[in-house]
Protein backbone atom coordinates (compact mmCIF):
# COMPACT_ATOMS: atom_id res chain seq x y z
CA UNK A 1 0.00 0.00 0.00
CA UNK A 2 1.43 3.35 -0.99
CA UNK A 3 2.20 5.56 1.99
CA UNK A 4 -0.33 8.33 2.17
CA UNK A 5 1.11 11.81 2.43
CA UNK A 6 -1.74 14.05 3.52
CA UNK A 7 -0.58 17.24 1.84
CA UNK A 8 0.30 17.46 -1.82
CA UNK A 9 -0.50 13.85 -2.39
CA UNK A 10 -0.82 13.10 -6.02
CA UNK A 11 -2.23 10.06 -7.56
CA UNK A 12 -1.57 9.82 -11.24
CA UNK A 13 -5.09 8.86 -12.14
CA UNK A 14 -6.72 11.23 -9.66
CA UNK A 15 -5.22 14.59 -10.56
CA UNK A 16 -6.23 14.28 -14.17
CA UNK A 17 -9.83 14.76 -13.17
CA UNK A 18 -9.28 17.79 -10.92
CA UNK A 19 -11.03 20.16 -13.25
CA UNK A 20 -14.05 17.92 -13.58
CA UNK A 21 -14.79 17.94 -9.87
CA UNK A 22 -18.45 18.88 -9.46
CA UNK A 23 -18.29 20.29 -12.98
CA UNK A 24 -21.45 19.85 -15.01
CA UNK A 25 -19.37 19.79 -18.16
CA UNK A 26 -19.49 16.24 -19.52
CA UNK A 27 -21.38 15.26 -16.42
CA UNK A 28 -23.63 12.28 -17.02
CA UNK A 29 -24.72 11.28 -13.54
CA UNK A 30 -25.89 13.15 -10.50
CA UNK A 31 -25.16 12.16 -6.96
CA UNK A 32 -27.45 13.46 -4.23
CA UNK A 33 -25.72 14.08 -0.96
CA UNK A 34 -27.44 13.63 2.37
CA UNK A 35 -31.00 14.19 3.43
CA UNK A 36 -31.13 17.56 1.74
CA UNK A 37 -30.21 15.89 -1.52
CA UNK A 38 -27.56 18.35 -2.56
CA UNK A 39 -26.78 17.53 -6.20
CA UNK A 40 -23.27 16.78 -7.27
CA UNK A 41 -22.43 16.66 -10.99
CA UNK A 42 -20.39 13.50 -11.58
CA UNK A 43 -19.01 11.43 -14.39
CA UNK A 44 -19.51 7.72 -14.93
CA UNK A 45 -16.05 7.34 -16.39
CA UNK A 46 -14.38 8.86 -13.35
CA UNK A 47 -16.52 7.11 -10.77
CA UNK A 48 -16.47 3.81 -12.58
CA UNK A 49 -12.73 3.67 -13.06
CA UNK A 50 -11.78 4.94 -9.62
CA UNK A 51 -14.30 3.13 -7.48
CA UNK A 52 -15.59 -0.46 -7.83
CA UNK A 53 -18.82 0.37 -6.05
CA UNK A 54 -19.88 2.96 -8.63
CA UNK A 55 -18.75 0.67 -11.42
CA UNK A 56 -21.25 -1.94 -10.23
CA UNK A 57 -23.94 0.60 -9.43
CA UNK A 58 -24.04 2.04 -12.93
CA UNK A 59 -23.23 -1.09 -14.95
CA UNK A 60 -25.27 -3.86 -13.39
CA UNK A 61 -28.70 -3.12 -14.78
CA UNK A 62 -30.24 -1.60 -11.69
CA UNK A 63 -32.25 1.58 -11.50
CA UNK A 64 -29.22 3.85 -11.07
CA UNK A 65 -27.84 2.73 -14.42
CA UNK A 66 -31.01 3.95 -16.11
CA UNK A 67 -31.83 7.12 -14.19
CA UNK A 68 -28.21 8.17 -13.88
CA UNK A 69 -28.92 9.30 -10.37
CA UNK A 70 -27.85 7.90 -7.05
CA UNK A 71 -28.59 9.29 -3.65
CA UNK A 72 -27.03 8.75 -0.27
CA UNK A 73 -29.61 10.10 2.13
CA UNK A 74 -28.33 8.41 5.24
CA UNK A 75 -24.71 9.45 4.93
CA UNK A 76 -23.00 12.62 5.99
CA UNK A 77 -22.87 14.96 2.97
CA UNK A 78 -19.46 16.30 4.07
CA UNK A 79 -18.03 12.80 4.30
CA UNK A 80 -19.43 11.99 0.87
CA UNK A 81 -17.96 15.23 -0.48
CA UNK A 82 -14.55 14.27 0.86
CA UNK A 83 -14.83 10.81 -0.74
CA UNK A 84 -15.74 12.37 -4.09
CA UNK A 85 -12.89 14.84 -3.70
CA UNK A 86 -10.59 11.90 -3.27
CA UNK A 87 -12.06 10.08 -6.25
CA UNK A 88 -11.45 13.09 -8.51
CA UNK A 89 -8.22 14.45 -7.09
CA UNK A 90 -6.57 11.74 -5.05
CA UNK A 91 -6.91 13.52 -1.69
CA UNK A 92 -9.39 15.40 0.48
CA UNK A 93 -9.31 18.36 2.84
CA UNK A 94 -10.32 18.84 6.47
CA UNK A 95 -12.00 22.12 5.58
CA UNK A 96 -15.71 22.02 4.80
CA UNK A 97 -16.80 22.75 1.25
CA UNK A 98 -18.54 26.03 0.58
CA UNK A 99 -21.07 24.24 -1.57
CA UNK A 100 -22.28 22.52 1.57
CA UNK A 101 -22.52 25.70 3.64
CA UNK A 102 -26.11 24.87 4.45
CA UNK A 103 -25.03 21.67 6.16
CA UNK A 104 -22.98 21.69 9.29
CA UNK A 105 -19.76 19.77 8.97
CA UNK A 106 -19.09 16.62 10.97
CA UNK A 107 -17.48 17.09 14.37
CA UNK A 108 -13.68 17.03 14.22
CA UNK A 109 -13.24 13.51 15.54
CA UNK A 110 -15.97 12.16 13.22
CA UNK A 111 -14.63 13.56 9.95
CA UNK A 112 -12.07 10.88 9.19
CA UNK A 113 -13.90 7.87 10.64
CA UNK A 114 -16.84 8.68 8.38
CA UNK A 115 -14.64 9.02 5.34
CA UNK A 116 -13.11 5.72 6.37
CA UNK A 117 -16.50 4.03 6.70
CA UNK A 118 -17.57 5.19 3.23
CA UNK A 119 -14.26 4.16 1.73
CA UNK A 120 -14.82 0.72 3.25
CA UNK A 121 -18.33 0.44 1.87
CA UNK A 122 -17.24 1.71 -1.54
CA UNK A 123 -14.20 -0.61 -1.40
CA UNK A 124 -11.55 2.08 -2.04
CA UNK A 125 -8.53 0.69 -0.28
CA UNK A 126 -6.21 3.67 -0.73
CA UNK A 127 -8.71 6.09 0.71
CA UNK A 128 -9.02 3.95 3.82
CA UNK A 129 -5.30 4.32 4.37
CA UNK A 130 -5.41 8.08 3.83
CA UNK A 131 -8.30 8.47 6.29
CA UNK A 132 -6.46 6.42 8.90
CA UNK A 133 -3.34 8.55 8.57
CA UNK A 134 -5.25 11.76 8.89
CA UNK A 135 -7.17 10.43 11.89
CA UNK A 136 -4.00 9.28 13.62
CA UNK A 137 -2.42 12.73 13.22
CA UNK A 138 -5.52 14.41 14.48
CA UNK A 139 -5.66 12.21 17.59
CA UNK A 140 -2.15 13.22 18.63
CA UNK A 141 -3.71 16.47 19.82
CA UNK A 142 -7.39 15.74 20.17
CA UNK A 143 -7.35 12.54 22.16
CA UNK A 144 -8.38 14.63 25.14
CA UNK A 145 -11.57 15.77 23.42
CA UNK A 146 -14.85 14.90 25.07
CA UNK A 147 -16.23 13.63 21.79
CA UNK A 148 -13.57 10.89 21.63
CA UNK A 149 -15.72 8.20 23.31
CA UNK A 150 -18.58 8.80 20.87
CA UNK A 151 -16.13 8.84 18.02
CA UNK A 152 -14.86 5.45 19.18
CA UNK A 153 -18.42 4.12 19.33
CA UNK A 154 -18.99 5.15 15.72
CA UNK A 155 -15.67 3.70 14.57
CA UNK A 156 -16.60 0.34 16.06
CA UNK A 157 -20.07 0.31 14.56
CA UNK A 158 -18.97 1.25 11.03
CA UNK A 159 -15.94 -0.95 10.59
CA UNK A 160 -15.02 -4.58 10.80
CA UNK A 161 -11.89 -6.15 12.12
CA UNK A 162 -10.93 -7.70 8.79
CA UNK A 163 -8.24 -5.18 7.93
CA UNK A 164 -5.04 -5.40 9.86
CA UNK A 165 -4.45 -1.67 9.27
CA UNK A 166 -7.96 -0.88 10.30
CA UNK A 167 -9.01 2.39 11.84
CA UNK A 168 -9.72 0.41 14.99
CA UNK A 169 -5.97 0.06 15.55
CA UNK A 170 -5.59 3.83 15.40
CA UNK A 171 -8.20 4.31 18.07
CA UNK A 172 -6.91 1.61 20.36
CA UNK A 173 -3.37 2.89 19.90
CA UNK A 174 -4.35 6.41 20.91
CA UNK A 175 -6.27 5.20 23.94
CA UNK A 176 -3.45 2.92 25.02
CA UNK A 177 -0.90 5.73 24.80
CA UNK A 178 -2.98 7.86 27.13
CA UNK A 179 -4.56 5.15 29.22
CA UNK A 180 -3.64 6.77 32.55
CA UNK A 181 -5.60 9.90 31.68
CA UNK A 182 -8.44 8.37 29.72
CA UNK A 183 -9.40 5.25 31.64
CA UNK A 184 -10.09 7.22 34.80
CA UNK A 185 -12.85 9.06 32.99
CA UNK A 186 -16.40 7.85 33.47
CA UNK A 187 -17.41 8.05 29.81
CA UNK A 188 -14.47 5.83 28.89
CA UNK A 189 -15.30 3.20 31.47
CA UNK A 190 -18.83 3.25 30.17
CA UNK A 191 -17.50 2.82 26.65
CA UNK A 192 -15.40 -0.18 27.63
CA UNK A 193 -18.40 -1.80 29.24
CA UNK A 194 -20.59 -1.12 26.26
CA UNK A 195 -18.47 -1.94 23.21
CA UNK A 196 -17.10 -5.43 23.70
CA UNK A 197 -14.91 -5.47 20.55
CA UNK A 198 -13.20 -2.28 21.74
CA UNK A 199 -12.60 -3.74 25.21
CA UNK A 200 -11.02 -6.85 23.71
CA UNK A 201 -8.78 -4.87 21.34
CA UNK A 202 -7.65 -2.59 24.18
CA UNK A 203 -6.81 -5.44 26.54
CA UNK A 204 -4.86 -7.22 23.81
CA UNK A 205 -2.96 -4.06 22.97
CA UNK A 206 -2.08 -3.32 26.60
CA UNK A 207 -1.00 -6.90 27.19
CA UNK A 208 1.25 -6.67 24.19
CA UNK A 209 2.65 -3.30 25.35
CA UNK A 210 3.62 -4.74 28.69
CA UNK A 211 5.61 -7.52 27.15
Amino acid sequence: MAPAIPEGLTSSSGTAFDSLFNNSKYSDVTIYLGESKIPFAAHRVVLGTRCPYFDDAFQSGFKEGITNEISFEKDSPHALWRVLRYIYTGNYSDEPSETLHSESDDLELFKHPRVFALADMFRIQELKVIACKKFEQQLQQHWISDTFPDSIREVYSTSNNTDSDSIRNIVVGAVASHKQDLLQKGPFQELVREVGDFAVDLVLRMAKGRN
Binding site: A57, S60, G61, F62, K63, G65, N160
Partner: peptide, 19 residues
Protein backbone atom coordinates in the same frame (compact mmCIF):
# COMPACT_ATOMS: atom_id res chain seq x y z
CA UNK B 1 -37.04 -6.64 -13.29
CA UNK B 2 -33.81 -5.35 -11.84
CA UNK B 3 -34.16 -1.97 -13.43
CA UNK B 4 -36.80 -1.10 -10.84
CA UNK B 5 -34.42 -1.76 -7.97
CA UNK B 6 -32.07 0.68 -6.32
CA UNK B 7 -28.58 -0.68 -6.21
CA UNK B 8 -27.66 1.71 -3.44
CA UNK B 9 -30.45 0.43 -1.21
CA UNK B 10 -29.71 -3.26 -1.74
CA UNK B 11 -25.99 -2.88 -1.39
CA UNK B 12 -26.42 -0.94 1.81
CA UNK B 13 -28.73 -3.63 3.19
CA UNK B 14 -26.17 -6.37 2.64
CA UNK B 15 -23.42 -4.04 3.90
CA UNK B 16 -25.25 -3.47 7.11
CA UNK B 17 -25.99 -7.12 7.64
CA UNK B 18 -22.31 -7.92 7.28
CA UNK B 19 -21.24 -5.05 9.54
Amino acid sequence: NASKLSFEQLYRASYKIVL
